[in-house]
Design a protein around this nucleic acid. Structure first.
Lengths: 140, 140
DNA sequence: TTAAACTGTATGCATTAACATAACAGTATT
DNA sequence: AATACTGTTATGTTAATGCATACAGTTTAA
């Protein structure tokens, strides 16, 4: 899995943390430790999905457009990284005669899909606010 | 996640499928659709973990050394790919002042670990034999 | 109306990870 | 001693990932 999901969660938590619930791509990028372009791309996507609003022009930036107590990591995962747990290489080959070789691909597909459902189910337990609280009370 | 887990499962299922429960790296590689070197590396590892035995020399190869009805995909996952679901890029930076930036990394680590536990729990439901049966009765 | 500070988006670059290929030593069989 | 295997390392190639740059479009404000 690439880290767009991580960046999305971090950005939303950061926005929830700020009093104004608003920040520019550069401010977010500094906090996340990445570059503004990457933030803009990811935030654009989060806007399409309704998680944030954007304001262009001077004094613009991104602002929270959802209730951080209601939005779960599963929703963010679904939007950003669905299907990303499965390796992109497939074993076997549907063209071969052997039952194992020819069917393994679809069987493994099914297994990975099921396991990902469980993965998401775990992420359903945690909201953006939960993460924010954990961050605040993290002893480190 | 890379596909070593997939290859390992496929190889074990293939061995369980064969009457002699034995095959060379080249035979397995053909079935899996990859190269013998990769199979040997993965099978070497599976031998260390006790899943297979190897026989060197002429007429040698790999043979099942476990009960395919008892070995679950979770055990194989644990051996081959534990921790592989987490992205290897980390957001934030422990050196920053901001609570969010500095603690996000360890909070996300914890979340990914928990989610992976659920993922593995799903894989516990399926044995090598289960996969073999699914492969045999796959309508495709 | 013009400058400044933003977002949106495209493109190319650099690095790393993933998979393939080749080579060769070690080992068992015949 | 030839053959057919595994074990392991080194090297090549391709794809994924994240970074940097550039520039058009938008809003604000002097």
């Amino acid at each position: 899995m690439n880290s767009e999901f991580t960046v999305a969660v971090h950005s939303l938590v950061f926005l929830a943390y700020l009093p104004e619930h608003m920040a520019s791509s550069e401010t977010i990028a500094r906090n996340v430790s990445t570059n503004p372009t990457r933030i803009r791309k990811i935030m654009s996507f989060l806007r399409e999905q309704g998680f944030v609003k954007t304001k262009e022009g001077v004094g613009g930036g991104y602002m929270l457009n959802c209730d951080p107590q209601k939005v779960t990591l599963a929703q963010i995962y679904r939007a950003m990284a669905c299907g990303a747990l499965k390796p992109n290489w497939n074993s076997g080959d549907p063209g071969q005669d052997c039952l194992v070789a020819s069917n393994m691909q679809s069987v493994m597909d099914h297994i990975f899909r099921e396991a990902e459902v469980q993965y998401r189910r775990c992420l359903e337990q945690t909201t953006i606010c939960d993460v924010l609280e954990q961050v605040k009370h993290c002893q480190s």
